[in-house]
Design a protein around this nucleic acid. Structure first.
Length: 507
RNA sequence: GGCAGGGUAGCUCAGCUGGCAGAGCGGGGGACUCAUAAGCCCUAGGUCGCGGGUUCGAAUCCCGCCCCUGCCA
């Protein structure tokens, strides 16, 4: 059994999750579930980034202890992920004792490698960004990202990380492992960045008390990114024995805005500490409105909780992954069109095409064959299913998740067309056509069984339900076993429909 | 300012080693009836961002410009 260790970015504890966060988590969950269905032993870690000036400030604003504040935030994020059906095996928090210990150990190793030195830093410091800004970057004397706030000239002693030592090693690694950064466009960006050479970066802060104490010194905390990135190791128990069974990660799923940290700083830290590098960093795109990132007010108007409740978590997952490509951005003209498209996709794909296919199939088998069919192998439909599933696997392997869903919908459409072209209702009136009727209906059961397995990573609960309505027991089997484990071909007549149509106008 | 990607049917996008403009959704029409008034079949005539150029022929190659997004400065 292969191990497969996948992570997502940990989320910053100064706000609540919106649809953009859910995109990353659901996508990673789809991958994790797919790997399990391929027979891998999967570890899937998500979590919270809970240190830093902004978290501290927000807690103070609320008038509560930072520890209590992050506990509250973390429980809310976890509730959201649970509602979405994430199959994560771990939930890491950077304020946990085990994480703090792991960060300190990693910093010590980097120190032992000679890659940490103390130096004086002077510059403009933006507290919002928790970063220094060069004078040339300032706009009207303010941080370009936070023009409403004053920016102050600061001098402090900082520990620095010799990132500049790793320009060549990183270039070499990427050249030897082109799959290290994906998609290609992101790799190109990082290559250009590296070709320009790297500067050393500061690895500590002396003015941010809410953080991991810098080891073996007073008054310094570990810089937020040096604190956050090692979560991928700390969650495995590093430096205690046992983490080696899972490390290096097979896949870091992140947003395209933080590639620098994951494709440059993180691997350089690992190299310095003498640890192996993750196999792949995958930078997904964003859900955008009106050509730009989701603004706070747009995110509020979309309202993740209400969206999930609208058609249920499985439908939400399906629609999200079908609408937004996993390797690039998806832009909606407006919040209204996003919500409209969300419903339209539900109605067209899930209610009309898939739900109705299941319903009509089960109904016909009950009505014409007393709920019992056999046969249906080696039909035209079966061949179409095999071809579409081959494409599905190729797309899943290359993480074209949206394209894989298109492959599933191809099977659904083919099946619906098959019904009409073979007209089972006409065959049912002709006693001589009993065998042909059996073949047609059997082929539909087999097609739907394949659909349920292929959809399982995207809609785990609905896939189970499809499987059960076909007369299968439990959950759809792993891909390898589908050949032997067809459903009983005795669909039970069940009440209600899988995906009810939207009958009333949207409110 | 530098670099990368993009601007194609109402919407989202595919096509881009040059050769009759495509898909899905929405919209319109038709035949059927097992089904969630769903499905199936037919139908989209869009200056392929703008202006030049190469070519027998360009959405597809080259040059210039405009706009959008991202990374860097």
């Amino acid at each position: 059994m292969n191990k497969f260790y996948v992570t997502t970015a940990i989320d910053y504890a100064n706000g609540l999750p919106h649809v953009g966060h859910s995109f990353e988590k659901v996508g990673a969950d789809v991958i994790a579930r797919y790997r399990r269905l391929r027979g891998d032993d999967v570890r899937f870690a998500i979590g919270m980034d809970e240190h830093g000036q902004n978290v501290l400030r927000e807690a103070e604003r609320q008038g509560i202890e930072p520890g209590a504040w992050v506990d509250d935030i973390a429980s809310k994020w976890q509730a959201t992920w649970q509602r979405l059906g994430l199959s994560n095996t771990d939930f890491v928090r950077t304020t946990s004792a085990s994480h703090v210990r792991a960060v300190q150990e990693l910093v010590r190793r980097i120190q032992a490698a000679g890659d940490i030195y103390l130096d004086r830093y002077e510059g403009y410091y933006c507290e919002r960004c928790e970063a220094f800004r060069k004078e040339s970057e300032l706009v009207d004397g303010k941080c370009p990202l936070h023009p409403s706030r004053d920016i102050s000239w600061t001098e402090e002693q900082n520990y620095f990380f010799r990132l500049s030592n790793y320009t060549e090693p990183l270039l070499d690694h990427i050249a030897a492992h082109p799959e290290f950064i994906q998609p290609d466009s992101r790799r190109n960006e990082i290559l250009r960045l590296l070709e320009g050479g790297l500067d050393d970066i500061s690895a500590s802060r002396s003015r941010v008390p809410w953080g991991v104490p810098f080891p073996d010194t007073e008054g310094h905390t570990v810089y937020v990114w040096f604190d956050a990135l090692p979560n991928y190791l700390s969650v495995l128990g590093y430096p205690e024995d046992g983490y080696e069974a899972w490390w290096p990660a097979d896949l870091h799923v992140i947003g395209k805005d933080i590639t620098r940290f994951h494709c440059v700083i993180w691997p350089a830290m690992l190299m310095s500490a003498g640890l192996p590098l993750p196999a792949t960093v995958w930078a997904h795109g964003f859900v955008m409105i009106g050509g730009g990132k989701l603004s706070k007010s747009e995110a509020e108007r979309i309202d993740l909780g209400r969206l999930v409740d609208r058609h249920g978590p499985d439908a939400f997952r399906f629609i999200l992954m079908r609408e937004a490509p996993w390797d690039s951005d998806r832009d909606f003209p407006s919040v209204e069109s996003f919500l409209q498209q969300f419903d339209d996709r539900y109605q067209a794909d899930l209610a009309n095409d898939l739900g109705n296919l299941l319903n009509r199939t089960v109904a016909m088998i009950g009505k014409y064959r007393d709920g019992r069919v056999s046969g249906g192998q080696d039909t035209e439909l079966e061949n179409a299913c095999r071809a579409a599933l081959d494409a599905y696997h190729q797309h899943m392997e290359s993480m074209q998740l949206h394209a894989a869903l298109e492959d599933v919908m191809t099977i659904v459409r083919r099946s619906n067309a098959w019904v009409d072209s073979r007209a089972p209702w006409a065959l049912a009136r002709d006693p001589a056509a009993a065998d042909e009727l059996d073949e047609v209906l059997g082929a539909l059961v087999r097609a739907l069984a394949r659909i349920s397995v292929a959809l399982a990573p995207f809609m785990p609960d609905k896939a189970d339900e499809i499987w059960k309505r076909l007369g299968g027991a439990g959950s759809p089997p792993p891909f390898d076993e589908l050949g032997e484990r067809w459903p009983a071909l005795v669909p039970e007549s069940s009440e209600g429909v899988l995906f009810p149509r939207i009958e009333t106008p949207r409110d």
